[in-house]
Design a binder for these strands. Structure first.
Length: 518
RNA sequence: GGCCGUGUACCCAAGUGGCCCAAGGGAACGGAUUGCAAAUCCGUGAUUCGUGGGUUCAAAUCCCACCACGGCCUCCA
């Protein structure tokens, strides 16, 4: 099967993925994962899910992927902007927030953690992230259960980071400044700026409004970034040749990618905001430490997610977490599709309407899967050997024929919209003569990438159970009214259900209901 | 100031020189169905691609200018 063609941020070109290990793979793929000071929001998940979509697309071509995603549990500083570390430790901020939540009884049941223990805070949010990620079908979050190394935590990689700092100093790419901080010397790496376009002569000191001249005094160049900060007062600290302190925040990915995947890797992903400075700095560190022509062969960056046409940011407070939406009755399938259906190199606009649009599409796919399954079951139970033989000999059905185009669309730089259109077109075609087993297999194969058929149900919770009980009670009242042909009473109950956000459907085989997302 | 991305129907969105009087989904509308609905199924739906020029036999697709929106330039996915 042809290889996946993918855009690469570094060269700006679309190229085939050619695994370092050879055409049979595996493809080595490192994704910048979440920080665990708080719950991940849907913008984070757009980036993680696009990485997941990429790895599933590669796997669809028959090439295995070794996908690593870190979980950043080191408490970095709120004012990392100052590059030499400043402000407050984010883990401490999270701890204070948790302590307050604990006091007011807002902590979820069973979450009895010590808000002064940074690792406990990190683990608390990491567990919640993994729950969300599994619901959304992030494959790496499933794999981590049998292979913990696949989602590494930087707090367990400090020796490797220290080793990298030492090597960078030895090779003349880093120095200890007057304030005792170890900095990377950007002028020692001529390619600095190639990824982001922020070359040293173009970089404007403090253009982001966050770097003050005073904090630059100790550095040889304003763009020099911190590798190790000695700070005995820091919440999390480790011994090092430069005194007890903590590592710079770019270092963890360089160390873990090299340790788990190799000094050179095939793919590296992150959100677009990671391009600079994070990935620019990673490239500098990794290449200067390990040598070699490249760090990652392909850089894969997902653009930001807007919400209802507005920029989403923590400060604006217009962001949703995955859990917020699950609590509203949004299915993981709908959220997954909504976050992945817009091409990764375009800003996506997240809307409740879009979520509903996608849900209808998924429901149609799911109905087809069910009807195919029951057709198979029907043939089996009637022992229709003749029909089975006819099906086996039948020409390919519409879904089976769509698989190739579906895959081709995805292989073309992840053209999800075209892939979905291919599927929808096939579904609208007549498949009366097609073999249901082969058709279902084809649909399932396409779903190995989309990943929606098996997560198309609302997430159960205490609230959803309460709602269900209430709805069941109202529905039986309505059924009684309908049996008595008391339409007025029946409609009153339906209005009541509507007020609860429940849509009633009377079908030939009884009444069903769904939650309306508002 | 530098780097980058986007502008296609009411909404989301594909299309990157002829197969485009432009895919797919949703909404809307019409029909079937229904106690009435919802859901479902069938059908309708842009002679036009931010604006203005240009190149070409041929442009949504290439070039120029302009307008608008978004991202990054050391917190951020």
């Amino acid at each position: 099967m042809p290889a996946v063609r993918l855009h690469d941020t570094l060269t700006g070109s679309v190229r085939e993925i050619e695994p370092i290990a050879g055409p049979q793979g595996p493809v080595t793929f490192y994704s910048c994962g979440p920080t665990v000071y708080d719950d991940a929001h849907i913008g984070n998940f757009r980036s993680f899910l696009n990485a997941d979509l990429l790895r599933r697309t590669i796997e669809l071509t028959g090439v295995p992927v070794r996908h690593v995603m870190n979980i950043t549990d080191v408490g970095h500083m709120t004012d990392d902007a100052q590059a030499d570390g400043g402000g407050e430790d984010k883990m401490a901020v999270a701890g204070r927030r948790l302590a307050e939540a604990k006091k007011s009884g807002q902590l979820p049941a069973g979450a009895d953690i010590d808000p002064s223990d940074p690792l406990a805070i990190a683990n608390f949010y990491a567990d919640r992230f993994l729950q969300d990620a599994r619901l959304l079908g992030l494959k790496v979050a499933d794999e981590v259960q049998s292979d913990p190394s696949i989602m590494p935590r930087p707090t367990r990689w400090i020796p490797q980071m220290i080793d990298m700092v030492r090597r960078l100093i030895d090779r003349g790419h880093a120095y200890v400044a007057g304030d005792g901080v170890v900095y990377f010397d950007v002028r020692s790496f001529p390619d600095y700026g190639r990824l982001s376009g922020n070359t040293l002569d173009q970089l404007r000191e403090g253009q982001g409004g966050r770097v003050s001249a005073a904090n630059q005094a100790n550095k040889r160049h304003p763009a020099d970034f911190m590798l190790w900060k000695p700070d005995p007062a820091h919440l999390m600290k480790w011994d090092s040749p430069w005194g007890p302190g903590y590592p710079g925040w770019h270092l963890e990915c360089s160390a873990m990618a090299a340790g788990l995947l190799g000094e050179q890797i095939d793919l590296h992903s992150g959100g677009e905001d990671n391009i600079f400075p994070h990935h620019e700095c990673e490239i500098a560190q990794s290449r200067c430490c390990h040598g070699g022509p490249a760090f990652a062969r392909h850089w894969f960056h997902t653009r930001h997610l807007m919400v209802e046409g507005q920029k989403m940011s923590k400060s604006k407070g217009n962001f949703f977490t995955a859990r917020d939406l699950f609590a509203k009755g949004v299915t993981p399938a709908a959220l997954r599709l909504e976050l992945v259906r817009t091409h990764y190199r375009v800003n996506a606009n997240f809307t409740l309407q879009g979520l509903a649009d996608g849900q209808r599409m998924i429901d149609r796919w799911a109905r087809h899967a069910e009807s195919l399954a029951s057709a198979i079951e029907g043939l089996r139970s009637t022992g229709a050997a003749a029909a089975a033989a006819r099906h086996a000999a039948a020409a390919s059905g519409p879904l089976e024929r769509a698989v190739e185009d579906f895959g081709a669309a995805l292989r073309d730089d992840l053209n999800v919209a075209r892939a979905i259109a291919t599927l929808n077109e096939a579904l609208a075609k007549d498949h009366a003569d097609a073999c249901p087993a082969r058709e279902l297999a084809a649909l399932r194969r396409m779903d190995t990438v989309l990943g929606v058929l098996d997560r198309n149900a609302p997430v159960a919770s205490k609230a959803s159970e309460d709602l269900e009980a209430r709805v069941t009670e109202l529905l039986s009242r309505r059924a009684a009214a309908r049996a008595a042909r008391d339409w007025a009473a029946s409609d009153r109950v339906r209005d009541e259900l509507q007020a609860l956000g429940v849509q009633v459907k009377d079908g030939p085989s009884g009444t069903t209901w769904t939650r309306v997302v508002r």
